[in-house]
Design a protein around this nucleic acid. Structure first.
Lengths: 160, 160
DNA sequence: CAGTATCCGGTGCGATACTG
DNA sequence: CAGTATCGCACCGGATACTG
């Protein structure tokens, strides 16, 4: 990556329409969208729970949920089925789940560089409890799947 | 992480002001900002080169550069020193460099899920040439530092 | 080249009220 | 509860011209 021994470039070697990051910004480069995905990863699925948690206006929430469903990041799913009236909420799709990696990377970065008192969470292996991290490693390094990750609040947040 | 065997939550276990991802959105949840950081990682440092590469209006570029310098993601640096007139450009700070990990994660995600013909780049170890990836791994796994990463265009982009 | 200055138009946001 | 409907103002983006 670019550092002091690198001669500067006049142009990036990859045009925007072939850059994954640039393409991704079309979907997620919006504060609300990222926060919604964060909630979804934590298992929050109900419209009014999103609202209560992140303080998003209705019009914006409705719009972002539509976009995320269109982008196949979230899917509408029924909950409390069976009895009187079926309610619907939102949960990550397969594609949405894979967004967990960049999201965890962003969380860790923000925790390290922006949070007052360091990280409020740790991420561990769901089955073994081993502490985990997001890192750059050789391609053949065994990795942990996103669905095997559990986010554990470090302390008092536990009670929430 | 949340998946089918997880009971849904009414609230995220971490409030926004203690979540790294939420804090990060204050700085980077803007399409232009992400694109500028991308350029900076590729070694682009000049005002008009940013403009030419990503098509950003002057007013917006000026604003975003200010914010990124304020956030200590970029720093102003002189180039073409010594002769007639010193020119200034922008380059990632230490903190800015660490943003490379979430950025690479986002690139890889976009390349996989949004790019027409897959990824246009590969990332390799600067010294050994070993192919790399961003992944979730046990905490004690040896990792590659961001400054040891080289982004290599796969083919024709090379010529740009 | 690396910015300022100015200006106008669209729209995204947030508030509030309403509905099945 | 999970949304629609409406609405006004603020602000942001993009264009153009100018400067040291």
């Amino acid at each position: 990556m670019s550092n002091s021994d690198t001669i500067y470039r006049r142009h990036s070697p990859v045009p925007l329409d072939k850059c994954g990051a640039a393409l991704a910004t079309d979907i997620i480069s919006d504060r609300w969208t990222i926060l919604i995905m964060r909630e979804a990863f934590y298992g929050v699925m109900r419209y009014d729970d999103f609202r209560a948690d992140i303080g998003i206006p209705r019009s914006v929430l409705t719009d972002r949920l539509k976009r995320l469903v269109d982008a196949e990041m979230l899917k509408r799913i029924p909950y409390r089925e069976g009895n009187s009236r079926t309610r619907y909420g939102y949960a990550p799709t397969e594609t949405g789940l894979t967004f967990g990696l960049p999201l965890l990377a962003l969380m860790a970065w923000g925790d390290t560089h922006l949070a007052e008192h360091g990280s409020a969470i740790k991420i561990v292996d769901r089955s073994t409890g081993t502490k985990l991290k997001v890192a750059i490693v050789p391609e053949d390094t065994p990795e942990i799947g996103i669905t095997d990750v559990r986010i554990v609040p470090k302390q008092s947040e536990m009670t929430r």
